[in-house]
């Protein structure tokens, strides 16, 4: 059997790209043997991160990388954009905070449903969010 490529990239610009990205993520999670609830969580995390790109930065990309370790396999999701960036990261990670017209649960909610979460941003330099979801074997 041919191994699927370990890194997949989906350009994000329109809201239909959000659907493509989360479907790509769900498929990859399924291929890697993630449980069904975990597949849904991977897809949800991607959906939140990809939407942030469309809403706040116009365009960017979602990269999905597979991490193989002896006792577990993971999906690393990297959301990158070159938008205006986030001036106040602490607030952006707090439940209910939003500068758009949203519930303010995108970033804090995503942080709750993944195993590792990292965000870097400076005003004017865009945002990079990196999250990892592991599947235990």
């Amino acid at each position: 059997m041919q191994h699927p490529p370990d890194v997949l990239v989906q350009a994000i610009r329109y809201d239909t790209d959000v659907i493509s990205a989360r479907q790509l993520g769900r498929k990859r999670a399924e291929e890697l043997g993630f449980s069904r609830p975990d597949q849904a969580l991977v897809a949800t995390a991607i959906s939140e991160l990809a939407r942030n790109i469309v809403v706040y930065a116009d365009q960017g990309e979602i990269e999905l990388a597979t991490i193989h370790q002896p006792d577990r396999v993971g999906i690393k999701i990297t959301a990158k954009d070159r938008g205006p960036g986030i001036a106040d990261l602490e607030s952006a990670l707090a439940d209910g905070f939003s500068t758009g017209n949203s519930l303010g649960l995108g970033l804090p909610g995503t942080r709750r449903i993944v195993d590792e979460f990292d965000i870097t941003s400076s005003p004017g330099l865009g945002v990079i969010v990196t999250v990892v979801k592991w599947s235990r074997r």
Binding site: R36, P37, Q39, A40, L41, T44, E48, D95, L103, L105, P108, G109, T110, R112, I113
Partner: peptide, 13 residues
């Protein structure tokens, strides 16, 4: 769906 319900709750929705 059950998986959808679970991820909504975990997300805080």
């Amino acid at each position: 769906q059950p998986d959808v319900a679970l991820s909504m709750v975990l997300l805080g929705l």
